[in-house]
Simulated assay, not measured.
Amino acid sequence: MLTRLFSHSKPIAYAILSILFAIAFCIENFFSTPIDLSTALVFGKLGILLVFLLLVFLLNFIVKRNKIHQQHTYAASSFVLLIIAFPEVLRSSEFVISYFFLLLSLRRILSLKTNTNIKQKIFDASLLLSISIAFDPFHWLFLLVIYFGVTLYASQNYRHFIIPIAGLAIGVILHISYFLIFENTWINFRDYLPKFTGIDTFFETFKYGSLTGFILAILTWIILQLPIIYNRAKLHERETLSLILAFMLISLSALIFNHKPVSEDAIYLIWPLAILIGNYFQLKSTKKWIKEVFYIFFVSGIVFSAIY
């Protein structure tokens, strides 16, 4: 049933996903933990909900605009159903804003494939990344994704490799200026260094250890299908998929080497994984019953998270 619902991109599918996500968000932010309600808090939470919904629609925009997917909502539905199982992510605020600007940066790099306004797009991508870094310092790692995109789409001019540094430098200068003027302090450069706390932090609790293992199992299965996905993709689609895979690789590095638990940063893995799941689902060789099993596991993850 879910396979049929999300096998197209009709408005009803997006409406159901938006309502489902909004319900889960409100439960986690207003009912699951005791809070002192105020007008400012309610509007602040609703603003974060809007950013989350923008992440969903940005995912859909990227895969459709860059022709990564056909006309379906497999990726968006996979993202929503997987992310709901991680309530700590739904309760985040600065992090989701940071991730939103990170995805805007990725979108500008993907748009380099049109071969128009190349310098402007590279600068925009690096400037958006600098905004993301202001919220989460460890996002500087994604500068590698920008350079990979430049190498993939705009390597014919060596000046294109200088632009990301210029855009990032402007953002860093503004960031430092803010701290000096309003906080009367200097930024702590140690926040930008990797903080590997060990693999055991991914499995520190039974709940998130199980959910992490579940997502890693899905990722392993999708990776095994990559040869088929690439063989069925056109040349421009392969380039875009390569950039998404680079984004996922850096996302895994951010997940491993920052100091936060996976319960808060699961979106690093889930967002790019949802795109790959969408590619796998649209293969003619992917049977309908396999898709249904995936959706059953997604829903089971939500139920498991709610119970524990």
Rank of each mutant, 00 (worst) to 15 (best):
L193E: 14
L193R: 01
L193C: 04
K195F: 08
F196P: 05
F196Y: 15
T197F: 13
G198S: 09
G198Q: 10
G198W: 07
I199G: 04
I199S: 06
I199T: 09
D200A: 12
D200T: 07
D200F: 08
T201E: 15
T201D: 07
F202N: 02
F202M: 06
F202K: 01
F203V: 13
E204H: 10
E204F: 10
E204S: 13
T205V: 01
T205H: 02
F206M: 11
K207S: 11
K207E: 12
Y208M: 04
Y208D: 13
Y208V: 00
Y208I: 01
S210M: 09
S210W: 00
S210K: 00
L211G: 01
L211A: 06
T212P: 00
T212V: 04
F214V: 02
F214R: 05
F214K: 00
F214A: 08
I215D: 01
A217M: 11
A217S: 10
L219E: 03
T220C: 14
W221M: 12
W221E: 07
W221H: 09
I222R: 08
I222D: 02
I223S: 10
L224H: 09
L224F: 11
L224W: 08
L224C: 10
Q225G: 01
L226S: 04
P227N: 07
P227Q: 08
P227I: 05
I228E: 14
I228A: 15
Y230T: 06
N231F: 01
N231T: 03
N231W: 03
A233M: 10
K234L: 09
K234N: 11
K234R: 11
L235M: 11
L235K: 15
L235N: 13
H236G: 02
H236F: 13
